[in-house]
């Protein structure tokens, strides 16, 4: 019995076991799987539950916080709106009258220059008439929210506008001039008589002007609408406002 070197002896075992494979006698996978599943299901939900709880608390807290902050503001807004209504109504009167005066001026200016502009102005003039009609209809419409009013106008006056536009186009320039004159008269009336109906109508007129601008110039000028509406209350120089702002936005 010769002694074997330790290295060789070790190597014998190493070689034998290096790629050794023994197939399991029983199906161990099912038991392994059953061990994996419940642990994962138990462990993961704990994390998820805690995370969900934290989120819920945070969300509820935020909601409560916001509501507490918002509620007084909302009430304040309502109160302000109700109180401010007359003020706001009166302020658009001046502004809208200014806005109305602008197209009229332009009619005067543009009429001599180009026929296309004249047509466009004629449209606006006719629409302004329509607006006054539509505005009277909508006087009953609630409140100041411009979008609703705008939509209503867009739907209702369209037919009339189209019809009248066709007529206006067919008609001569003199008639459009007359229309503009009529508008100026109406403006005078507005200035002289700040009635609620007319005020709202004038507001509507300003809004409708914006609508027309939107139709003609599309999305870029929608911004102008808002700006003009927002700016109505304050600045008088915006008389030329809608169109100027339109030009700015176009730039």
């Amino acid at each position: 019995m010769q002694p074997i070197q330790d290295k060789d002896f070790d190597q014998l075992f190493k070689n034998a076991f290096e790629d050794a494979e023994i197939t399991p006698s029983r199906n161990l996978w099912s038991s392994i799987e059953s061990e994996i599943v419940p642990k994962k299901k138990r462990i993961v939900p704990l994390y998820w539950l805690s995370a969900a709880a934290v989120l819920l608390i945070a969300a509820v807290g935020l909601l409560v916080y916001q509501q507490q902050e918002v509620k007084p503001k909302q009430f304040a807004n309502h109160v302000e709106l109700q109180k401010a209504k007359p003020i706001i109504e009166t302020s658009p009167v001046s502004d809208s009258s200014k806005t109305i005066t602008t197209p009229v001026r332009k009619v005067d200016q543009v009429l001599p220059s180009t026929t296309q502009h004249v047509e466009a102005i004629a449209k606006t003039a006719v629409k302004e008439k329509v607006r006054s009609l539509g505005s009277q209809k909508q006087v009953t419409a609630p409140e100041m929210q411009k979008q609703e009013i705008m939509i209503a106008k867009v739907e209702e006056p369209k037919k009339d506008i189209k019809a009248k536009i066709d007529e206006a186009i067919l008609q001569s320039k003199d008639e459009t001039v007359l229309a503009s004159n009529a508008n100026t008269i109406s403006i005078d009336e507005v200035v002289g008589e700040p009635d609620h109906a007319e005020n709202k109508g004038i507001r509507n007129v300003g809004d409708v002007v914006n609508l027309i601008v939107n139709k003609m110039d599309k999305r870029k000028d929608k911004l102008i609408q808002f700006r003009t509406d927002d700016d109505d209350s304050s600045i008088s120089s915006i008389n030329i406002g809608p169109f100027r702002i339109g030009k700015k936005s176009r730039k």
Binding site: F17, D19, A20, I22, P24, S25, L28, I32
Partner: peptide
């Protein structure tokens, strides 16, 4: 991998039963 791993576990175990127990714990 199971057959190779069982061969590993068998070396460390007294018998196949113990080896398969280790194998199971190892896979988990």
């Amino acid at each position: 991998t199971v057959s190779k791993m069982l061969a590993v576990c068998m070396r460390y175990a007294k018998d196949r039963m113990e080896a398969e127990d280790i194998l199971q714990m190892g896979y988990i």
